[in-house]
Amino acid sequence: MGPDATQVHTRHDGLATVFVAVDRFVADVVGIHAARPGTRSEALEPIYQGIVKHLAPLTANIAKGLTLRHDHDPQYMSYAFQQEM
């Protein structure tokens, strides 16, 4: 699975961050989430969506062995994000 983020400008709210999680094997979006601001906690949401959609409800070790490939954006490099993964 590969998460990524981009920023968009909205007419009413200003900058927002859109996070996606992609199943890189089949190039399918498995989760999407927009937030203002785009924090490390918000970056987890599309990953959670993909796990729930394709595996099972979130429980400890449900995605053990799942490989997560990401760029080195600050949200993904934060200690809290890394500990959750």
Rank of each mutant, 00 (worst) to 15 (best):
T17Q: 12
G31H: 02
A27I: 11
A60F: 03
Q75I: 13
R40Y: 10
D13N: 12
R69Y: 15
A35E: 11
D28W: 12
R24P: 11
V30Y: 09
N61A: 07
A34T: 14
T17N: 08
A35I: 05
V22P: 11
Q7N: 09
H70D: 07
R11K: 07
F19A: 11
A43Y: 04
E84C: 09
I62C: 11
M1L: 08
K53C: 07
I32C: 12
M1H: 08
F25Q: 14
H12Y: 02
I51R: 11
Q82I: 03
A60V: 04
Q7R: 06
Y76E: 06
V22T: 15
H54L: 10
E84V: 02
A16G: 13
V29L: 04
I32K: 07
G2Y: 00
G31T: 07
A5E: 14
V8S: 02
V8I: 13
Q83A: 12
H54R: 15
N61Y: 10
Q83Y: 11
T10Y: 00
T59Q: 15
M77K: 12
A16K: 14
P74T: 05
R11N: 03
L55G: 01
H9Y: 03
A63H: 01
A43F: 01
A35V: 03
P57G: 02
V20N: 14
R11W: 02
A80I: 04
L44R: 05
Y48C: 04
Q49L: 01
R40F: 00
D71N: 13
V22L: 15
P57S: 10
G2N: 04
G14I: 01
G14S: 06
A16N: 07
D71G: 07
H33F: 07
K64F: 02
P37S: 00
L44P: 05
V20E: 12
G65T: 08
L55A: 02
H54M: 09
A63L: 09
R40H: 09
K53H: 14
T17R: 08
T59R: 14
T10W: 03
G50H: 04
F19D: 10
Q83M: 00
S41H: 10
R24K: 12
A34N: 05
D13G: 00
V18D: 11
R24Y: 15
R36L: 01
R11Y: 07
L66K: 06
S41K: 10
A34Q: 08
P57A: 04
L15R: 14
H54V: 02
L55T: 05
R24Q: 08
H12D: 00
R69V: 13
H72N: 15
Y79I: 08
Y79Q: 08
A21Q: 12
N61I: 00
G38F: 06
T10N: 01
F25I: 06
A35G: 13
A80F: 06
M1N: 02
